[in-house]
Amino acid sequence: MEALPQLIASAIILGGIYALVSIGLTLVFGVMRIVNFAHGEFLMLSMYLAIGLFATAGIDPYVGLLVAVPASLVFGSLIYYVVIRPVVARSHAVQIFTTLGLSIVLQNAALFLWTGNFRQLRLPYGGNVITIAGAAVTVAQVIAFATAAAFTAALFAWLRFTYLGKAMRATAQDRNAATLMGIDTGRVLLVAFLVGTLCVAVAGMLMAPLFATYPTVGLQFVLIAFVVVVLGGLGSVVGALLGAMIVAFIDVVGGFYVGTAWKEVLYFVVFMAVLLARPAGLFGQRGAEHLGT
């Protein structure tokens, strides 16, 4: 039982990281109805950006956010116009294979450019340990969690209170109706995609000090993100938060009690059970109207 405070602390931090990766995915799906299989590769690119900034210019990844945010907007727009927009009105099959193709391209571009070697961004102070209520956490973990939480809260408020945020939620509910109401849905789709890209860009900068970076690192997190967003209900920000916490707790607390060898089976079983019992996920039952609430 003495392990419990540490397990909980680790799970909450991991949950915060999963949430940030998942929220981007869930927003893109909620608004655009596209499952972005290249989401993990966006994360990978951001982690490489963090490594590159730190190695070449000594820029701390938290300062590097100032570079990552505009970079992600430019990159996101480019991908949106070149790859995504032409298939927005197409079948699921076409959309899935377009984003899968994109994922193959980005993953191998990274392999081509930066080799398959593993890299770790090592902050001089990042590994320093803080003890809170019997749980040891590192500075990098605390910053990652706090930033993720603040970012999520801001996003949440933006979706709730701004015109664009409301327009996004309206579009998620019913794209045709939103168009009839005079919402420029084309623009809203772009914004949703950019917000999704932005989320992983931030996540990547925060994660680079915590996890090794390599060309297939995105896969490691995107599969978890899929579980999270479906658990929470595709399109629901609150659902993604809750789903992320559930998966993280299974990972850490479940891993402790049933063994790490079987923990994935545990969360995939929970995943399938939830989905079959509540097909729209925990928070998706009333469709996408719950986006942002």
Binding site: V94, S103, I104, L111, F112
Partner: peptide, 22 residues
Amino acid sequence: ERSGLYLIVYGVLLIVVVRVMP
């Protein structure tokens, strides 16, 4: 040759083909 090159080409072709011939 350089790792990953042929898969980049493969991925691009995939994107193009599903778009041109959905």
